[in-house]
Write a protein that binds this DNA or RNA. Structure first.
Lengths: 335, 335
DNA sequence: CTGTTAGCGCCTTCAG
DNA sequence: CTGAAGGCGCTAACAG
């Protein structure tokens, strides 16, 4: 194993340049008044001997790591990937980098990550977690000023929030109304596995009763937010309840899984079963039949979340909740 | 703005527990011999006053940050997202976290990131970059022992490599042969924008001539690896060269863009134009017509890359090049 | 404009 | 098994 080359430090540069470490520091950070001559000279030496500042040392004294943390449940879901992209672009503009924590939909990992993140390894955090219950999430974030939540509000204005205006309960209603309009009466609901699942189910039943659709509590089944889970759950539901004529999926991946399950079971979509999703990922417009879904401006949301975060990091603690409208995009799967 | 609570340090715990910082350090890190009593006691105090080790301080002295860097061109491409997931899972198992750098297909950003990453902010690096030319990439990685490249080899065995066995030139040939078999003779090639574009074009012409297909150098157009770029490029190519009867896309996103462009231009796929992609992302099987593509085990590749990285980080500098076979998945777009 | 002093929070080393 | 001393590389605060 090649011996690791000894790190080049500020002091090395100073010695080489015939100055003090402090002067070098000022040159490197472009802070304080420095004569043009020494600046040029120091820069040259630094470049020549390959000096790179140590983030760790810097962080230790400045208490800033120049990193923001992004916690997402599943980076392979284009919905979150696009949010992360929005965050990353904003961070990049400000010289920050992104510490990605992908919790893989695992609750324990989410907690662990949130706890890890406290080790002051980041200056701010953006959290997309729809599953962690408030009792767990709140203690973890209340220690920090700089937190932004996506698609979730924090009681007591502990964190800024970016979310879609109306949320999944609203979408359920809109989707239900839409599907009813085309004559469907017996439809299921396969929402994301969620900390407030019961509320979702209650809402589902309420909506059905208000709209005068048939009520089948057993047609409400929670589901992991993946294509595979959507397929399995959808298959089971369609198989055991052949009477159903529509299914509202919790997100697009789930809905696409259901779509495929329906096709595999020989159901025609939308004639036998109408299907709707949510998030309007690229896939939604491309499949056949194309998927009726709700459009949410994910990139903008990630970008805005980062902006709100930097605002907090700069000390402006004004509480802000930024809302984005969701829009039903009607396509073939539920015309 | 609420005043930031003062950080709880090792010394605080020591004072509170009536011991020395060193003892606390040993307890926290589970190192050295510590009596059971003091261990329990110190742990209790630490938990009680909410002690969290400072990563920065630790990193400064140990020279390890417990982070690995992952550099990818586009996190919204499921291909890379899945690789990152594989990396992340491995890192997580070892108590490491992932520093994500998404370069957005921007060369300058790739260089900047690679350079940033030198500030010893990570203990190892996994680099997916097919565009950065060797002359730029090599100097940046040769300073480090712990680098793994994905889909790219480093001369001089400077870094371990994980890649598909045969690469894009091979795929071009296989796809061409496949398409020819169904009677297509005039086909274009829309590869990824790439540092070795010229080699790709030469290879394209060579393959065409060897296989006895018509040669149209102008039907080889490089393209950014996005759906949108695929659409635009494909549209232009199909529009200006109506005679073409097949297009080989550089990846699935591109191919899907081409697919849509063909449809918008009123061409039947595959009858008028056959289309193939690469990577076999989820989308490929779901669109209509479904996309003929090459399957690559992305998750396994990410996971393996991380494993090779940790191996290097542990000091085992054996050069390893891990290959994965690509497999042509024949679907409707090019039967 | 430049240098000095001190210390961030932790771990390595060496003594008890 | 436990502690004291010292320093990682950098910058804040204060001098010149």
């Amino acid at each position: 194993m090649t011996p690791r080359r000894q790190r080049v430090t500020l002091t090395d540069v100073a010695r080489e340049a015939g100055g003090s470490p402090m002067t070098v520091s000022r040159v490197i950070n472009d802070t304080g008044r420095i004569s043009a001559t020494t600046r040029v000279h120091v820069r040259a030496i630094a470049a020549q001997i390959g000096y790179r500042p140590s983030r760790a040392a810097r962080a230790l004294v400045t208490k800033r790591t120049m990193m923001v943390g992004a916690i997402v449940p599943d980076i392979t879901n284009p919905y979150f990937a696009t949010i992360v992209q929005g965050i990353e672009d904003q961070a990049w503009e400000r010289g920050y980098s992104v510490w990605l924590a992908n919790t893989n939909e695992t609750l324990s990992r989410e907690e662990a990550v949130l706890s890890q993140i406290e080790e002051s390894s980041v200056d701010g955090r953006i959290v997309c977690s729809y599953r962690l219950p408030d009792e767990v999430l709140l203690p973890l974030i209340e220690k920090h000023e700089a937190v932004v939540l996506i698609n979730r509000s924090a009681p007591g204005h502990l964190a800024n929030t970016v979310r879609s205006r109306n949320g999944y309960l609203y979408r359920l209603r809109v989707a239900a109304e839409h599907v009813l309009r085309s004559g469907k009466r017996r439809f299921g609901y396969i929402p994301l596995r969620h900390s407030a699942f019961q509320a979702g189910r209650d809402h589902y039943l309420r909506v059905l009763s208000e709209l005068g659709a048939e009520e089948h509590p057993e047609w409400c089944v929670e589901c992991a937010p993946t294509w595979q889970a959507g397929y399995t759950t959808g298959y089971a539901l369609l198989d055991t309840s052949p009477a159903g004529d529509a299914i509202i999926g919790g997100n697009d991946l789930i809905a696409l899984g259901i779509l495929r399950a329906a096709q595999d079971l020989g159901r025609r979509v939308p004639d036998d079963v109408a299907i709707t999703g949510s998030d309007d990922i690229l896939l939604a417009a491309q499949v056949k039949p194309s998927l009726t879904s709700f459009r949410v401006p994910t990139y903008a949301m990630g970008s805005m979340a980062a902006q709100l975060l930097f605002r907090r990091m700069a000390g402006d603690m004004t509480y802000i909740e930024h809302l984005y409208d969701e829009e039903l995009i009607v396509r073939e799967s539920a015309p």
